[in-house]
Simulated scan of single mutants.
Amino acid sequence: MKHSERVLFLDIDNCLYSPDLGISQMMKSRIYAYGREIGLDSDEVEETCSTYFKDYGLTVRGLVLHHNIDPQEFNDKVDGSLPLEDIIKPNPLLRNMIESANARIWAFTNAGLDHASRVLKCLGIEDLFEGITYCDYTEPNFPCKPEKRVYEKAMKEAGVSNPQLCYFADDSAKNVEAALQLDWTAVHVSKQTSSCEHGYIAGEDNIIRCCHIETVLNLPQALPELFS
């Protein structure tokens, strides 16, 4: 276990593995199939699910609120049905990079616990994380990124009270911006251009750096203070 006071929060999906694996597309097709199964109009299911995702952070939250679905059934038929073990393979380079970080390592995901644990196991890095802040679909009005309260939840669960000790990597620009608003140091992991690629964003008491990298393996270059 790392003894540093600093905590490196790592998103999981499309961050620790490449989005080119197509897992997001597989998940979307399963969500749409589930939507049709519960009675959503076939011609409107994609738009409805997309609207829920934009309005509530996760499609499942909208389905729970407006269609009274069983969240465990959703989890089993969507996340749980993904053939992750056939797609995601152990990544020694990722493991070596995480092991070299001078920070405590914590997973911070919008997925459920089962899915998050499966991905980390497939990558061969599950033992490197002290814990996982995840979405409990069965919890009424559960928080998810980019809501402020889930970042506060992550800090509490990881046992860190000073936001200046919090470092974060995520593939979502919205999630990165939310972290910056809380004075975390954040890195946007994406092959697409980031809004904070070239600059610095001022926090309340200091300057918080927002970096952009194309792959999580570039974290040592983005956050040299954690890998020196």
Rank of each mutant, 00 (worst) to 15 (best):
S100V: 10
A101N: 07
N102S: 13
N102V: 11
N102E: 14
A103M: 11
R104K: 13
R104W: 09
W106K: 01
W106V: 03
A107F: 09
A107G: 08
F108L: 10
T109M: 10
T109R: 03
T109E: 09
N110E: 07
A111W: 01
G112W: 06
L113F: 11
D114R: 15
D114M: 14
S117F: 02
R118S: 10
R118E: 07
R118T: 11
V119Y: 01
V119L: 04
V119M: 05
K121E: 12
K121D: 12
C122V: 07
C122L: 09
C122Q: 03
L123Q: 04
G124E: 08
G124D: 10
G124S: 08
E126P: 00
E126T: 04
D127S: 09
D127V: 04
G131I: 01
G131H: 01
T133C: 10
Y134E: 06
Y134A: 08
D136T: 11
Y137L: 14
T138L: 11
T138K: 14
T138V: 12
E139C: 14
E139F: 15
E139S: 13
E139V: 15
P140Y: 00
N141S: 13
N141G: 10
N141M: 13
N141I: 07
N141C: 13
F142Y: 13
P143G: 04
P143Y: 11
P143M: 03
K145G: 05
P146S: 10
E147V: 12
E147D: 15
K148W: 06
R149F: 03
V150R: 06
Y151N: 02
Y151L: 13
Y151K: 05
E152W: 02
K153E: 09
A154G: 12
A154L: 04
A154W: 00
M155N: 00
E157I: 04
E157L: 12
E157V: 09
A158L: 07
A158Q: 02
G159M: 05
V160M: 02
V160F: 02
S161P: 00
S161I: 07
N162W: 10
Q164I: 10
Q164N: 13
Q164H: 14
Q164P: 00
L165G: 04
C166M: 08
Y167V: 00
Y167K: 02
F168A: 01
A169N: 05
A169V: 11
D170Q: 03
D170R: 05
D171V: 03
S172F: 09
S172T: 11
S172D: 10
A173Y: 14
A173K: 15
K174I: 12
N175E: 12
N175I: 11
V176R: 06
E177K: 15
A178V: 13
A178N: 12
L180Q: 14
L180C: 14
L180H: 14
L180D: 06
Q181S: 15
L182F: 06
L182P: 00
T185D: 11
T185Q: 12
V187D: 04
V187R: 02
H188W: 15
H188A: 13
V189I: 11
V189P: 01
S190W: 07
K191V: 04
K191A: 05
S194P: 08
